[in-house]
Design a protein around this nucleic acid. Structure first.
Lengths: 282, 282
DNA sequence: CGTCAAGATATGTCGGACAAATAATACAAA
DNA sequence: TTTGTATTATTTGTCCGACATATCTTGACG
């Protein structure tokens, strides 16, 4: 779930580094079911909890969900909180509802899979491999063209944003910061492409990179190589060469494909070895 | 706004052609502001009203919106209805809010522009030309590749869905039905591509076609030509020729580009003639 | 000038009550 | 038996009022 609480633009934020208010006490007793997180509003917790369960497959499409009273009981929140959370999931087309029937899970092809939150839940679902495969294929479709458009139309500040992100990627001390810069790099390219419909896809790339960052360990040589690939993209856009940008992005994606493939093999091997161990011990 | 009230899958719907219950009486007096629509739930009306105003530009990004009490007053609904509507818009990233500050319009690049409802509001906004331009460019990126994937991976029933939609397009008696079949055709291709991330984009194509259907008059010759172009796509997918499918889609899109360009010229001309008339009379 | 305290105000949450929609059931009629 | 109709039960939809929480603003104080 994206952080809903950010400083609004108009009331200029004097200090955005202020710590998020933690340690919020709940008077309500934490009843059975999933726990509530302090520091977050109840409806946000609920949206995440229910959304994650749906995407994870706990309630397959067509299933009638627990009704409002049951959710309310399960999470120890008021009915209005449940209703607002359900409405948010409806807005993402994960749910629909009717009086006397209840709420049910919508068929998967209606889900707003490109939504930030839904992507996050998908990325942490058991089908992570399916997620990575789909996202990566999608990137192959989108990103080369986006880079080509960016090479053709990018403005001066946009170019600076791209270069800056690329530099930060190279000098990031931690993998986490590197991933953030990586996401910023690709998002900046999408923005530079001059088509606002492309921008929501930044969340897609971000969740893919984050998923890779969490599960894949990478060696120094590899990181250097990846950095060179990114610089190749930057250079092509800087020089306003659409075809070169397209090719450079394809090279990067091919590299990522390879990493995913290797990781998949490793995971499959460890899985089968676990199976073997279990079979041997059983 | 997509119709939220549909028959759920599990309780098999015996008759889906039953008329939507109209003529619902409101006890509450219709106060100032936008009117409520009978037959629809209040929160749906509110989501549409507020969402449309935001996308249309009535409240530019950064603007603090009226607070809950004011919306409540404006539309003559209770505060909970307002809150649920606002939550749905938050789920689409059009809004964010904070206690003591209020709700504000999020920067445009955070909007979930690929969402069905947001697209609908965008399509009816004053910037319809910008909308069509962006969507059409996006189609150029997505659809050729989707068709190529479909040609490579389509199943038997998926092929039947494509062919059926293509046939229905050819024999549709009204333009409205033709547009519906057209949308079904492209949606079926997206589904056949075997990447679920592509499926939400059906809404994009649908809204583009609907927008064209509403504003563009087309001649019989033109329609025949378009039909042939669609059949070319169908044939390529039927024969499982990815490259041919890609090319066929590009031909169709080039044709659509031309139609949009012509329409744009016509509208610009009528606009300037109106200006001229006004200038002459003023 | 900077820091901290108090007030003001918008959203967040709770609880209860009633309205509306509709699936399911019971029942009457053909 | 079948068909159509009224009743019932249940779930979501809406309203209201109260209070909690967050946080911007203001002002006192060092």
């Amino acid at each position: 779930m994206a952080d809903r609480r950010r400083k609004p633009d108009p009331p200029a934020a004097p200090d955005d580094t202020a710590p998020v208010p933690e340690a919020r006490k709940r008077a309500a007793s934490p009843r059975a079911g999933a726990q509530r997180f302090s520091g977050t509003y109840a409806h946000v917790s609920l949206v995440n909890a229910i959304g994650q369960r749906i995407v994870r497959g706990d309630y397959p499409p067509g299933t009638i969900l627990p009704n409002e009273a049951e959710w309310s009981e399960m999470f120890g929140v008021g009915r209005s909180v449940v209703r607002e959370a359900v409405k948010m999931l409806m807005a993402k087309n994960l749910l629909a509802s009717r009086p006397k029937v209840g709420s049910w899970v919508e068929p998967r092809e209606r889900w707003n899979l490109l939504d930030r939150d839904v992507l996050t839940w998908y990325a942490t679902s058991p089908d992570r491999e399916g997620f990575l495969k789909a996202v990566q294929e999608f990137r192959h479709i989108i990103e080369p063209e986006a880079a080509a458009l960016a090479a053709a139309r990018r403005g001066e500040e946009q170019m600076q944003a791209i270069s800056s992100a690329c530099r930060q990627m190279g000098s990031a001390p931690t993998l986490s910061e590197r991933t953030a810069a990586d996401t910023a790099f690709h998002t900046a390219i999408l923005r530079s492409a001059g088509n606002e419909l492309l921008m929501p896809l930044g969340a897609l790339i971000g969740s893919a990179l984050e998923s890779l960052f969490i599960f894949v360990t990478r060696e120094a040589d590899d990181l250097r190589h990846v950095q060179k690939l990114h610089e190749g993209i930057e250079k092509a856009i800087l020089r306003q060469r659409p075809e070169a940008a397209r090719r450079a992005v394809r090279r990067l994606l091919a590299n990522t494909d390879q990493i995913i493939a290797e990781e998949t093999i490793v995971r499959a091997a460890s899985r089968s070895s676990r199976h073997a161990a279990r079979a041997a011990s059983g």
